[in-house]
């Protein structure tokens, strides 16, 4: 099988696992441990297991991964709460194992995949930019496999035009799903056009930074679409459904004027309340002056690979 080549930094720029591990230990035992009783921290990935993956390609482009601590402690995962710190603090009781993913709808061979079988597949590391619709960004070393692999196994019918991704509903384990104020419709649903879903950049991630996904990052399996805003990446996916009509998606239902179905990263189409022209890189360290805003790139820097998917479309209207 051929490996898809995607823009990727040289290995020398990736923080070695031993380095970020030691930073974590220092934080956990030295700083946080002094203030918070260990039992209350609930932030260490409970069942993190190492994952091996081959590199997904190479490029001379210089991206520095966001520190592990920030990737796993600054999250939007409203099933666990609205604050960025909620997913790490409140996902300790979530059980990502056992787990199955149902792939059905307009396919020739509907299948239910066990997470252990998915973890046993040949996995790739993909160092991707992640641009949140809130105008901040990260660089994350995901581990996973192209979504196209699964889709080809179930054989989409000719009538299939879209793919819907459904996240898990477990109010007993996900405190954000039983709040007082309306948040989003559960289950969280996201969707892609079939050609977007089949694109080699689109992956199902089962890990990051060399280990299985922490609960707060969407364990045990989540969607990653690097040229779209982060909210397109449905977390803790239980069902993938192929359809002939565009699926109703969670954020689009909540505020259709603010969150489009496509949600391609586009510096020229602003959110009604803030500009999307630039972004604040997360985790640069150094406090206020650690990192200046940087310009946001069309398609989050993946235009060369994906712009052709949208040829002839008005991306201002279909935002």
């Amino acid at each position: 099988m051929s490996i898809f080549r995607y823009p990727r930094p040289p290995a020398s720029e990736i923080t070695p696992r031993s380095v970020w591990l030691s930073r974590r230990d220092l934080l956990a035992t030295g700083l946080a441990g002094a203030i918070v009783p260990p039992g209350l921290m609930g932030s260490a990935p409970a069942r993190a297991a190492p994952l091996t993956a081959r590199s997904g390609g190479q490029s001379a482009e210089g991206l520095t991964p966001t520190p592990f601590q920030d990737v796993t402690h600054y999250n939007n995962f409203y099933e666990f709460g609205l604050e960025k710190t909620d997913p790490a603090e409140r996902s300790g009781g979530f059980h990502p194992h056992p787990w199955t993913v149902r792939v059905d709808g307009l396919v020739a061979h509907p299948r239910t995949y066990d997470i252990d079988a998915l973890l046993a597949r040949p996995l790739q590391e993909r160092l991707y930019r992640m641009r949140c619709v809130e105008a901040w960004s990260m660089v994350i070393p995901w581990i996973g496999f192209p979504l196209a692999e699964l889709l080809k196994e179930v054989e989409p019918l000719g009538s299939a035009k879209y793919v819907a991704f459904e996240s898990v509903v477990r109010p007993s384990e996900m405190p954000g799903q039983s709040g007082v104020l309306p948040v989003l419709e559960w289950p969280y649903v996201e969707g892609l056009r079939l050609d977007e879903a089949l694109h080699p950049l689109t992956v199902l991630a089962v890990g990051l930074y060399g280990q299985t996904l922490p609960n707060q990052n969407g364990a045990p399996i989540r969607l990653v679409v690097p040229w779209k805003y982060g909210f397109k990446g449905a977390k803790s996916v239980v069902r993938i459904r192929l359809t002939d009509t565009r699926p109703a998606t969670s954020w689009n239902l909540r505020a259709p004027d603010e969150y489009g179905f496509y949600a391609n990263v586009n510096p020229e189409v602003d959110h009604p309340r803030w500009s999307q022209a630039s972004e604040r890189p997360i985790g640069a360290r150094g406090g206020f002056f650690g990192a200046a805003r940087k310009p946001t790139l069309p398609f989050n820097g993946y235009g060369e690979q994906v712009a052709a998917l949208y040829a002839g479309m008005n991306l201002r209207r279909d935002f």
């Binding site: 920030d70 600054y74 960025k84 406090g287 650690g290």
Partner: peptide, 15 residues
């Protein structure tokens, strides 16, 4: 706290 990098991952936003 911001100068000492104690405001978390997005210090400007918190400030």
């Amino acid at each position: 706290m911001g100068l000492a990098d104690r405001l978390g991952a997005d210090p400007v936003n918190v400030f």
